[in-house]
C-alpha cells in the first residue's frame, strides 16, 4: 500500500518522508530545503503520448524504421540510479545538453492489474512532478539506454500530492523556466491517452504496484538545457521542482 493524506515530501537528511498540509509544504519549500524523491517504487516513462509529438512524426510513422503508428502505450524504465529530488544537481554529459521532459507523474496506491477506465482513479494515490531527463536523440526506434538511464536523470517531486488535491489531471498546465525566463509551456489535455486510459492500457499487460510511478508522458519539443543553467518546472498547482545542471565531474546529487 502507498497512502498519503495531504502532501508527502522527503527532506534531504531526514530518515523518512513527512505527510504535511499545504501551508507546511509552502513554508518548508520557501526555506530552500532540498528533498529526496518522494517515491521509491519503479518509475515508468511514457513516450509519444502527446498529439503534437505524433503529428510531428507525420509520414515517418509509416516509413522505416517505424512502419506503422504506435498501438500500445510506449514505455520505458527509469532505473533506480536515475532517481533524484528537488534541488538536484544533474551532470550534463556533453555539449549536446540535456532535454527536460516535464511530466505529470501518476503515483499508484494499490496493485493495479487490468483496471477499467471507470475505476482507474481508485488505484491512484496521488500525483507528482517528474523531470524525465535525457540526452537529446532523434530516433525513437531503438535508442541507447545511455540517453535516459544516467545517474540523476529522473528528478521527482518536491512532493506527492494526494489524489483529491488534483481535480482534473487531464487539464494541467505545464511550464518550464530556464534561468528565470519562460522556456516552454504545454498542457496535459494534449495527451493521446488520458490518465485513466493510460492505466487501463498499461495494466492490461503489466501490473503496477503500490508506490510505482508512471508518467503521463513528456510533451513534444521539450527544451534543452546546458551546464550552468537552472530550471524550474511546474505542473498544475503542484509546487515547482528546481534543478541545477552542472558540468560533468562537478558535485552531483543533492544541493
Amino acid at each position: 500500500m502507498f497512502a498519503l493524506t495531504d502532501y508527502l515530501l522527503h527532506i534531504e537528511g531526514e530518515p523518512l518522508p513527512r505527510d504535511v498540509d499545504a501551508k507546511t509544504v509552502r513554508d518548508l519549500l520557501a526555506s530552500g530545503i532540498a528533498c529526496r524523491a518522494p517515491v521509491t517504487g519503479a518509475i515508468y516513462g511514457t513516450l509519444l503520448n502527446d498529439r503534437y509529438a505524433l503529428d510531428a512524426l507525420d509520414d515517418a510513422l509509416h516509413e522505416k524504421p517505424y512502419l506503422a503508428p504506435p498501438r500500445a502505450p510506449i514505455l520505458y524504465l527509469k532505473p533506480r540510479n536515475t532517481l533524484a529530488g528537488h534541488h538536484a544537481r544533474v551532470a550534463v554529459p556533453s555539449a549536446d545538453g540535456v532535454q527536460i521532459g516535464a511530466s505529470l507523474g501518476i503515483v499508484i496506491g494499490r496493485t493495479a492489474t487490468r483496471v477499467t477506465e471507470r475505476n482507474a482513479f481508485d488505484y491512484i494515490a496521488g500525483y507528482t512532478l517528474v523531470a524525465d531527463l535525457c540526452v537529446p536523440h532523434s530516433s525513437v526506434y531503438r535508442p541507447s539506454v545511455r540517453f535516459r538511464a544516467r545517474d540523476n536523470f529522473c528528478v521527482v517531486g518536491p512532493i506527492v500530492a494526494a489524489r483529491r488535491h488534483v481535480a482534473d489531471p487531464d487539464q494541467l498546465q505545464i511550464s518550464i523556466d530556464v534561468e528565470g525566463r519562460p522556456a516552454f509551456t504545454a498542457n496535459t489535455s494534449h495527451s493521446i491517452r488520458g490518465v485513466a486510459r493510460l492505466l487501463t492500457d498499461v495494466t492490461d499487460f503489466m501490473t503496477l504496484s503500490a508506490g510505482d510511478v508512471i508518467t503521463l508522458g513528456a510533451p513534444f519539443n521539450a527544451p534543452v538545457v546546458h551546464a550552468g543553467e537552472h530550471a524550474t518546472l511546474c505542473v498544475g498547482e503542484l509546487p515547482p521542482l528546481q534543478i541545477t545542471f552542472v558540468a560533468p565531474h562537478a558535485e552531483q546529487g543533492a544541493a
Binding site: 512502419l67 502505450p73 510506449i74 520505458y76 526506434y141 531503438r142 535508442p143 503489466m206
Partner: peptide, 11 residues
C-alpha cells in the same frame, strides 16, 4: 506485439 518504438517495447 513488437512495435518499432523504443524496441523492444514493454508489451
Amino acid at each position: 506485439y513488437l512495435e518499432n518504438y523504443y524496441r523492444p517495447n514493454l508489451r
